[in-house]
Amino acid sequence: MHTYTEKIQNLAKDVLKQGKAEMVIGFKQGTIPMAANPFVAKNENDADNLIWSSTCGLNLANYLPGIKKCEGKIGIIAKGCDSRNIVTHIVENKIDREKLYIIGLPCTGMVDKKQIALLFDDEITQFSEEGNTLIVKSETKEEKINKQEYLRSNCKTCTHRNPVIYDELVSDLVEEQIIEDQFADVKKIEAMSSEEKWDFFDKLTEDCIRCYACRNACPLCYCPTCFVDESGPQWVGKGQNTDDIKTFHYLRAYHCAGRCTDCGACEEACPMDIKVRNFTRKLNKDSLELFNWEAGLDISQRPPLDTYQPDDPDDFIM
């Protein structure tokens, strides 16, 4: 059991008991190994089901705008990236800070389930962790692996593991990672020729089935009607045409420009293992370089593309 699990359960019980919040959004144990199921604890008994593990990679902030029936406050377990998306929600008028009771969770990174699955020819039957060691079993073999080597790629470059906004903390803050080159992956693509880039993204998106799990797992995507679903005008064709598929991915990325916290939920949710962060990462890099901006750090600031400053960079205008 992860050391955070018991703390979370106790904190949640306390929060619910004292009425600091009416519900607590967290994870419960999944039905299959390496799965965690987003779950809302409404009473102290429910709170016993809350867990924590390195597989809780989805972004719980995603569930906040959907909660309509709640008189009191909503409690939520928030790791670094979740908290940044909560900030974004507050900035974008999705929820009031006063409506929230945030249980901050200093995060040590989430694991890349698909990478781990590749170590096995058959299905994984058990997963557990002890500190930095992950113990993974299948019918045929057992592996003990170092968690740091199997972190999700966004967790590897994360510099905001600690929550940026919270009412109480699950544990002491953890040390933030110092990343030498935040955007090595983006630079690799930037160095390609136009043709190589085009082919790279062709290959990247070729298996997309347009289930929109990436969009739906993303806390930023809360529009009542998404542009892909609009019929008048129909911005994107609905078939499996590669240009339509790519258009969807481009536009989704644009809509996240300056707002994306690189939480990795999109990639985590993709059934086809498409590395969709390759789109948003570029915009994150640009936001940082052009506007010195990282999303979701300050509830008093709108993202750079929502505002105009006379000294905004304008080198692209010729």
């Binding site: 900035v91 809360y222 709108r302 929502d306």
Partner: peptide
Amino acid sequence: TCSACGVCIS
């Protein structure tokens, strides 16, 4: 279709 995100206001 408005998502009340406030970009227009900003």
